[in-house]
Amino acid sequence: MKMNNKQPPLSPHLPIYKWRLTMFASIAHRMSGVFLVLTMPMAFWLLLSMSHGKIMYAYGLSWLQSSTGTVLLWLMCVALFYHLINGIRFLLLDIGKTDSREAMKLSAKIVVFSTIIFALVLAVKI
């Protein structure tokens, strides 16, 4: 491969790799992260506003229990659950607990399947 001297090669060449579960887990970590950047500050703001005044509490609760609020809350909880346990997986990788190829494959399976189960349970319970 001929190198271009002006632009050094940058890391994610997504189209040239075959899709694997570990790769999906990594990409999904980023995607859930971007989604959480958009929603978590709003959720924090909403909860604080609801704690500060009775009127805002009533408005916030009725918005949360509307269909838009419920769907957004579900999506946010699923994204957060995934980001949280995949984050634990990455932290374990950083301290060298799961740095073999088999351990990464197994932990990716555990993370993805437990997220699916969590999403289904939350969809029923919410």
């Binding site: 978590m40 959720a43 924090f44 909403l46 909860l47 609801m50 609760l61 949360l64 229990q65 609020g69 419920t70 809350l73 946010m76 909880c77 957060l80 949280l84 919410i126």
Partner: peptide, 13 residues
Amino acid sequence: SIPVLMGVLLLTY
């Protein structure tokens, strides 16, 4: 801290 926040939000919901 995040699970506490989400738990409070879900219980409020």
